[in-house]
Amino acid sequence: METIKEILDIGAAFEALINWLRENADWLFDFIAMVVDGFLDGVNWIFQFPPAVLVIVLFTLLAWKASGRGIAIFTAIGFSLILYMGYWSETMDTLSLVIAAVFFALLLGIPLGIWASKSDTAWKVLRPILDFMQTLPAFVYLIPAVLLFRLGPVPGVIATLIFSLPPVVRLTNLGIRQVPVEIIEACRAFGATSNQRLLKAELPVALPTIMAGVNQTIMLALSMVVISGMIGAGGLGNIVLKGITQLRIDMGFEGGISIVILAIFLDRVTQALSHIGKKSRDKK
């Protein structure tokens, strides 16, 4: 048994791969880190630069416009509470991390989903990879992320991106595959090129399903961003982690509440956005 383990050491092989990547593709990871870091800083500046009260007002208006009065009231009270508890800056850090991770996840995930919907082979290859990504414990992503990108917010964003990618790929694929046959036939019968078909028919018809995937991706990203506090991503994850390691119940609880408020806000607003198209379509 010993010898087999020695010959076929899966863990060691993975480690060797990561080491090889560090030695030979460091420039690539540096470049990725630079892009992600720049984007993250930009987003963070948008939320941190204006006075907190103004941001709360804008969030409230957004919630009102998207999903109505109830959520607007919740947003106003919730974010005021965060400000009052003194976690405004951390919450905005977390929000920036989520937005950066989701932005890159969609940038990758939607094209992947389109590709998967167009080619059965692509889908056959992608599916087990997505299964792998979704079921591997979230913490495991942190190790290679740290090794390749060192500590800080960038590996946090990268780990989050990978963790939250599957839903949007899956639902983009599903949405496009579910477009009724007659709509596809109508496109072909009227002489659409495959690009015209994708842009004018398939994506718009699949939009509600894709938006459900985006919503899922955002929620997964939020949960992962908190976990990536362990590798120094900062934000609310830090607060919760401090609460655990220093046994500070008050801090842990306040950090937790802030995360819940942010989560509900993000969920309701993105869900409402994804329903806007659908609502106008279903209205009788």
């Binding site: 709509i183 109508a186 019968a189």
Partner: peptide
């Protein structure tokens, strides 16, 4: 051009822009 049994209209477009579809292409 073709007319379909279950219409095959684009649900996100209004009537006139559905009719325009072929010309737009």
């Amino acid at each position: 051009s073709m007319v379909f049994q279950n219409f095959g209209l684009l649900p996100h477009r209004n009537v006139v822009s559905n009719v325009e579809f072929g010309l737009e292409l």
